[in-house]
C-alpha cells in the first residue's frame, strides 16, 4: 500500500479491522416443516389475539364494576370530551355518507325495478335495507375507521411515551382512566349516530324517489309507513351498542399492544381498523341468524 494520504490512514485501518465475511444467513429456500411451523405459529397467535380481546373486555368490565361501586371515581370530563370527538364531530360526515348511500340505493332500485313495473317496492327495499342493515353497518364501519383508529393511535403513542406506565406507577388503573371513558363514549355515540344515519339515508331515498323516480313525498312516506314497523328499527338499533363495544375493545387492546417503534404504531392502527370491521360484520351475521330464529 503506497501513496495513502495520512488523513485517510485511520479510516483505512478501521476498515481493515472490520469483519469482511458476513455472518451466516439462515437459508431461505422452501422448506415444508418450516412452513408448517409457520401455520402452527399463526394459529397460536390467533388464539392469543382472541384471549387478548376477552382479557380487555374483562378488564373494562371490572373497571365498570369499580365505577358502579364508587360513582365519583368515574371520569365524566373525559367521557364528555370523547363524546364530543366521536359523536358530535362525526355528525356531518356520517350524515353525508348515509344520505348518499340512501340516494344510491333508491336510484338503483328505481332503475332496475322499473323494468318490471315494481317501482312501488323500491320504498320497501330502501326502508328495510337501511333500517335493519345498512344504517348500522355503515355507521359502525365509519366509526371504526374514524374513531377506532384514533383510539389505537392515541393509546399507542401514550404507550410509546411511557405515559401509560406513568399512570400505573401513580397508583391508578389505565383501564379506568383512559379506556373505560373511551369505550363508553362509543357505546353511547354509535346508537345515536345510527339513528341519525338511518334518518339521513331515508331522506336521501325520498329525495331520489321524488326527483328521479317520480314518486311524490306523500306516497313515499305512506309506503314507508306500511313497509316499516317498530320491530325493524329495534333490530337495527339493538345491534349498535354491541358493535360499538367490539370497536372500542379492539381499538384499545390494539393500542396497548404497540411496542416502541413508529412502525408498530402504524401496524397496530391498521390491525385495529381491519379487525374491528371484520368483527362488526361477523357480529352482524350472528345477529341476522339470531333475529331470523326468533322471527323478527
Amino acid at each position: 500500500m503506497t501513496g495513502l494520504a495520512d488523513d485517510y490512514r485511520g479510516l483505512y485501518d478501521a476498515v481493515g479491522r472490520t469483519a469482511v465475511v458476513p455472518p451466516d444467513k439462515p437459508r431461505s429456500r422452501f422448506d415444508v416443516p418450516a412452513s408448517l411451523a409457520g401455520v402452527g405459529r399463526s394459529t397460536v397467535e390467533m388464539g392469543r389475539e382472541v384471549t387478548g380481546l376477552v382479557d380487555m373486555l374483562g378488564r373494562v368490565g371490572r373497571a365498570l364494576v369499580g365505577v358502579a361501586r364508587d360513582p365519583r371515581s368515574f371520569r365524566l370530563t373525559s367521557l364528555v370530551h370523547q363524546l364530543d370527538r366521536v359523536a358530535w364531530q362525526a355528525v356531518p360526515i356520517i350524515a353525508l355518507i348515509t344520505f348518499l348511500i340512501g340516494c344510491i340505493i333508491a336510484q338503483q332500485g328505481f332503475f332496475h325495478f322499473r323494468k318490471f313495473g315494481a317501482d312501488q317496492y323500491v320504498v320497501d327495499m330502501v326502508g328495510i335495507l337501511v333500517v335493519r342493515e345498512i344504517g348500522v353497518l355503515l355507521v359502525a364501519i365509519m366509526v371504526a375507521g374514524r374513531s377506532g383508529s384514533s383510539y389505537t393511535a392515541e393509546l399507542g403513542s401514550m404507550k410509546m411515551r411511557e405515559e401509560i406506565d406513568a399512570i400505573r406507577t401513580m397508583g391508578l388503573d389505565p383501564v379506568s382512566v383512559l379506556i373505560l371513558p373511551r369505550v363508553l363514549a362509543l357505546v353511547i355515540a354509535l346508537p345515536a349516530l345510527t339513528l341519525l344515519g338511518i334518518l339521513a339515508a331515508l331522506y336521501g331515498g325520498g329525495l331520489v324517489a321524488s326527483l328521479y323516480g317520480g314518486m311524490s313525498p306523500e306516497i313515499y312516506m305512506a309506503r314507508l309507513r306500511e313497509a316499516l314497523s317498530m320491530d325493524h328499527l329495534k333490530v337495527g338499533m339493538l345491534k349498535a351498542p354491541f358493535m360499538a363495544l367490539v370497536i372500542g375493545i379492539v381499538a384499545c387492546a390494539e393500542g396497548l399492544r404497540v411496542k416502541g417503534s413508529a412502525e408498530s404504531l402504524g401496524l397496530r392502527t391498521t390491525a385495529s381498523v381491519v379487525k374491528a370491521i371484520f368483527l362488526v360484520i361477523v357480529l352482524d351475521g350472528i345477529f341476522a341468524v339470531y333475529f331470523a330464529s326468533i322471527g323478527l
Binding site: 403513542s157 401514550m158 411515551r161 411511557e162 405515559e163 406506565d165 406513568a166 406507577t169 401513580m170 397508583g171
Partner: peptide, 16 residues
Amino acid sequence: IERRWGILFQHGALFS
C-alpha cells in the same frame, strides 16, 4: 406505597 414514590421516566412521560 405508590403515593410515597415519584418516578421520572427517561423521556419524561408527561401527559401530552
